[in-house]
Design a protein around this nucleic acid. Sequence first.
DNA 1: CCTTATTGTAACACAATGATACAATAATAA
DNA 2: TTATTATTGTATCATTGTGTTACAATAAGG
Lengths: 249, 249
Amino acid sequence: MNKEFEQQESNISGEGFLPGLAIDTVIFGFHDNQLKVLLLSYKNSSLYALPGGFIHDNEDVNQAARRVLESRTALTNIYLEQFYVFGDYSRYDPTPLKAIMHARGYTAPDNHWLLKRFVSIGYYALVDFTKAVPTPDDISDSCDWYSLDDLPVLMQDHRQIIEKALQTLQNNLDQKLIGFNLLTDEFTMGDLQSLYETILNKKLLRAAFQRKMLSLGILERIAKKWTGGAHKAPYLYRFISNNVTADTF
Amino acid sequence: MNKEFEQQESNISGEGFLPGLAIDTVIFGFHDNQLKVLLLSYKNSSLYALPGGFIHDNEDVNQAARRVLESRTALTNIYLEQFYVFGDYSRYDPTPLKAIMHARGYTAPDNHWLLKRFVSIGYYALVDFTKAVPTPDDISDSCDWYSLDDLPVLMQDHRQIIEKALQTLQNNLDQKLIGFNLLTDEFTMGDLQSLYETILNKKLLRAAFQRKMLSLGILERIAKKWTGGAHKAPYLYRFISNNVTADTF
DNA sequence: CCTTATTGTAACACAATGATACAATAATAA
DNA sequence: TTATTATTGTATCATTGTGTTACAATAAGG
């Protein structure tokens, strides 16, 4: 697990992995009223990238995505969903990976499996920012949260992947009730509204929002939260429902 | 193009194709108030299958799906959308393809690329039943429409693929306005309602349906249609909008 | 011209949402 | 203690959307 990439690197033919197929995961978190994504930065390189990985030849694709997610966040039972396959030929560009391997002191032969064309299956995950433990993989310097409106320069088409993941999240937010996965277990109505406003990138009417959320019958009102502010204390709520982890099928 | 499979068959290593990656296309049509899908039946076999194919190593994945769609329907400019990647390990079963090749008098070596594990990218398409020209591929006896509620026994997990495509279509029907792609250029409000009822599998109220559709501002009222029935003649409508062909990105 | 079936739409009830208003209430200061 | 302040919870009303019923407007056919 620790020297995973080293094994992949020295495994020139890619034995044990599905060839040409990768997973990229957009892991969303919410903090300081900002939507964040988890990004890796590679050693000896200025490149940032989405957490990703490859699929073992005896492993379900969804399971591989979950493995990637769990190894970068140290969390299990997380909302995770496929959203798009990125398969344009124009994505094919072995130079970044070649550079990474070169920086590691490894010169790959041109027919190395990692330098061939890859099709990437995009997943997005929604995690509790306070619970996730960002964990670099073995070729990364760092694994950290970056605000969506202040992203560093990303490898390949990872920026478009994030953009598309965000669109999917926006589309799904009202239908599937998945926003709660981004909050802590207990939250105020203000927290929830702020989350919705951030994701949808628009202001919502407080009274209507609260009425609608309460009418859904999925919130349990707990206790009051004394914030220290000079005003009425908000209630805390908890999300009540089948703890959907998705994978959809 | 005509001997496409023969080339794939004799090409033991799968040179020129992305390995382990396939496309399956659920092509929907609407006729006789029934939702239909296009299925192939294989020569010397009782197996039915979705139209599918492989991706050339210099071809966009979406383009490959479009190529498959166009070669089975003889249509261009069709609504086509990715909906799910089927990547469970349990899908892996080389026997059907082995049987097909065997029936063709070809005995494949065990390491033949077509007998390895495949991950399949599911697409669905919406076509005008009256315009499509079902066209078998070179290993098929037939390419024909089958009603969704009377499907033959299908290869591998193709039945689940259809089921999932239908769910996606149901979910998208109201949001994206794509149902029109299943009708002829001109249609009555009754045709449209019947289509919606069939896809959603529930009765809709005529007055409310008509009011809503007209309020969307996407229908142009043409002329009246004299059906020969002893009653008021319905108007014909045409769908007005950006002719969305999707691929989404 | 009367019957029949179907279409287009009006009319009303009810539900959902937008918008405004206001009472309730924690802290702080007077 | 009491007034002040900001924020929360919810009532209220207007507007819009949808469910439901009803009915006038026809195309045939007798």
